[in-house]
């Protein structure tokens, strides 16, 4: 089948090599015997997320995000429907903040009920997270200036490094097929299981006859294991 992927705000929310997520996602969807139409849209361009099967949004500077917020708010109802329809969306870095009620005093998309507070200091950290949706752990890096407080279903639990705020050990949001996390950069390139889970999940949702193919991702797997090993050593204080 043909799967339509939208890389949103690709030229402004692109701070940490985020486009890597899209190219590797495309490759893995194709590996499962599909074709992929990849489109990029940004500020001022017409789009409706509902015309796509998968939407990806990456991280930006605070000023960049504020600018995008004005644009994305024009699509509020479209995103509500998209998320309600259980379509797939991955928002990494600070982009997932836009789906909450407010960023500081600025009204956001208000699809979820979280509030975002910005601090002057930057919070950066290598991380290991676990998730009830994955067997293995997720590795990566968080680079942000915010705290988010919510009572929603978190995407991750913090095993090492920083999480959403100083009070809890959760991180990110998962609601239907909305996946939001502050992990920055090409997290799909670094976490083969997370990538496979999203790709296979979407393919199954789109076609009842879908039969997953086993593909050799030795290089990505070995890269992941090495990082997990390094970070586990750090976590254990070695």
């Amino acid at each position: 089948m043909n799967i339509k992927v939208l890389h949103l705000y690709h030229d402004i929310l692109n701070l940490y090599g985020d486009y890597g997520n899209v190219v590797i996602l495309k490759k893995h969807i194709e590996d499962q015997g599909n074709t992929v139409t990849l489109e990029k849209k940004s500020i001022g361009e017409e789009y409706d997320p509902n015309n796509y099967n998968f939407v990806y949004i990456g991280a930006g500077t605070e000023r960049g995000l504020d600018r995008v917020l004005k644009d994305i708010k024009l699509h509020k109802e479209q995103f509500k429907k998209f998320i309600d329809d259980r379509k797939y969306i991955l928002a990494t870095g600070n982009s997932f903040e836009m789906f909450g009620k407010k960023i500081e005093e600025e009204e956001a998309l208000n699809i979820f009920d979280y509030e975002v507070q910005r601090d002057k200091d930057r919070k950066t950290s290598d991380i290991i997270y676990s998730s009830e949706y994955l067997k293995g752990k997720v590795v990566g890096f968080v680079n942000k200036s915010t705290r988010v407080y919510h009572n929603m279903n978190p995407f991750f639990k913090v095993e090492f490094g920083i999480g959403e705020n100083e009070k809890n050990d959760y991180e990110g949001v998962k609601y239907k097929n909305f996946y939001g996390t502050h992990i920055s950069g090409p997290i799909l390139a670094r976490n083969p299981e997370l990538l496979q889970t999203l790709v296979l999940g979407m393919c199954k949702d789109l076609s009842r006859d879908f039969k997953p193919k086993k593909i050799d991702y030795t290089n990505e797997q070995r890269g992941y294991e090495l990082v997990l090993e390094e970070l586990t050593k750090r976590a254990e204080g070695k």
């Binding site: 090599g17 985020d18 290598d126 950069g185 390139a189 670094r190 390094e230």
Partner: peptide, 11 residues
């Protein structure tokens, strides 16, 4: 300092 971050390779 230590970090395992390699996002910059994509840039």
């Amino acid at each position: 300092y230590f970090t395992s971050e390699t996002s910059w390779l994509w840039d």
